[in-house]
Design a binder for these strands. Structure first.
Lengths: 305, 305
DNA sequence: AACACGGTTGAAAATATCTTTCAAATGTGA
DNA sequence: TCACATTTGAAAGATATTTTCAACCGTGTT
């Protein structure tokens, strides 16, 4: 416990890391020759020096450990250890300063690391856009309808079908009766069965996919509450929709199909819808979720050693 | 010999400061209780921990020096000293970028607008974590294998099956022979047909889903190049994987199942894989993509007036 | 030129910190 | 319950840091 006093000292008085180079210049005149060599090395390559031990830095500068420690002291740190920590911080800091221009399109010859960065950035952007553009009133209405629905039918084809399946899976997990339809004919056949109190959800990025519009129209005519999740709030599908949830569209490039970002956007909307429903049906949702985890437990292999 | 590449993951991961919190979550399940306590402390207060010595951190977490060192090792650092340096860097990093206030868990009584904001933020976080934690060497190897594969089989069940389908759909669109298998029996039956030059991809968040491991094992034994996309880089599935792509794990709450963020993470990985393959097969991929757009055009209704 | 003297320096000892070892404690499955 | 494997921390061992101290250097004086 006694050493803790030292800790508290280092906590309140270390110099601001950013000003290190300046401090070196300021204090240089009052330094001895060997100390200046050390200070120079430190100011010149903080990141590199952070990787060195006292001995390493002493050798690098052609001085001794003692001199390195003296320099650290002069710069305002309790010892070399703390200077080194500050150096690490400084390195990380200036690392982040160099913001990579990931805003560009993905090119054919981009290195794989750039692809990862750009893709992640794009999808993050898509999420932000979607969240910003989502009408919470419409979403609230959709949630209310879905939470009390007798049954929920979901239509989606192509890439959107996966989103539909995802939603259906999750709703089913919390005990709701939800089905995703991919086959347009079967979807229409099923839609005919719907009536007031049921919910139909169409997912289409273009807002004009016939195979998805048709079953929604039937459901609409039958009196079911209809929801459209689309990137085109003015598209044809919305004329059969009681509630419209808008997804965002990101620029697409040759290598990055629009389906990619629309899927991200659709999934966020669908997740919001799901969480909303789960909130409203919490009493039954929570145990249902727990039960489904339980049921799956035996499908996993034991931990290896 | 090829399988030894797996080793490189845990061994080479150098100071990746930004991804520390993510790494803690990813590796937490494979940690012992006391190690988790240490990891928690580190992830919770990087700045504070950076000021502590091994002994200090051991006392703080009620464990021993040995455990602290073990934890540092598991997180990918040579020892505590290096973890501490990374921590200092991280502290400086987050000092500059002030975190937003939507970090709280989603509660049962959150208004719908908050749900949207929190969910979007969480998914963005997941994307960032995934991108930071993705081993580009492994990814590059996976891309190379997939781009030249005679055929690609993809295994995934539950939520992961949708990710598998998404990947298969996209690869098929650029002219590759790719199939997603959901039925474990059929998957194994198909896996038997694989041989050297084919690629098998298993997608499982837990890393221990038997239904997915089994076909991958068969493919592995048959000499196919095997890829595992999993949130548990130390899970059983990796023993049959030539290349391991790690997805990140976000904290989950009662209302937000882990499946949600793992899906986001998996999709990003899969997208990166796809783009990588598309780059490598650009000559054939570009016209194939264009053709598939063309073919779908007539499935859309004309814009209404 | 020789000397004395204050400041500078690094080798080596002393200390602090980190790492490894190993046996006890704890948990786990038969 | 026992046998076995895993987890854990105390203490020994290895490194890194700090301190000590005598040698060294440069300068100014006699």
């Amino acid at each position: 416990m006694t050493h803790d006093l030292k800790e508290s000292f280092s906590a309140d008085s270390p110099p601001a890391p950013a000003a290190l180079a300046a401090k070196v210049r300021t204090l240089a005149p009052s330094m001895t020759r060997s100390m200046q060599r050390v200070a120079e090395a430190v100011a010149g390559d903080p990141a590199g020096c952070a990787a060195l031990t006292v001995t390493g830095l002493a050798e690098l500068t052609g001085t001794s450990e003692a001199t390195v420690v003296r320099t650290a002291r002069l710069l305002g740190y309790p010892g070399y250890r703390d200077l080194r920590l500050a150096l690490a911080g400084l390195a990380a800091h200036q690392q982040s300063g160099r913001a990579p221009s990931v805003t560009a399109d993905i090119a054919v010859d981009d290195p794989i690391a750039d692809v990862v960065a750009k893709l992640a950035y794009d999808e993050q952007q898509t999420l932000a856009d979607t969240a910003a553009g989502l009408d919470t009133v419409q979403l609230g209405a959709a949630v209310a309808a879905a939470a009390t629905a007798r049954r929920i039918d979901i239509y989606g084809v192509g890439a959107s079908s996966l989103v539909g399946q995802d939603l259906a899976q999750k709703l089913a997990r919390i005990g709701l009766i939800a089905h995703s339809h991919t086959d347009p004919h079967l979807a229409v056949t099923n839609a005919v069965q719907l009536r007031s109190g049921d919910v139909a959800i169409a997912i289409t990025h273009s807002g004009s996919t016939v195979d998805v519009m048709e079953p929604l129209r039937v459901a609409f005519d039958r009196g079911a509450t209809t929801i459209a999740i689309t990137g085109r709030p003015d598209g044809p599908v919305t004329q059969y929709a009681d509630h419209v949830l808008t997804t965002s569209t990101a620029r697409e490039s040759e290598l990055r199909p629009a389906a990619m970002s629309s899927r991200t956007s659709q999934l966020l909307v669908v997740d919001c819808l799901f969480i909303g429903v789960a909130q409203r049906t919490y009493e039954t949702a929570a145990p249902a979720l727990a039960a489904s985890y339980e049921a799956l437990a035996h499908r996993h292999a034991p931990r290896p050693r």
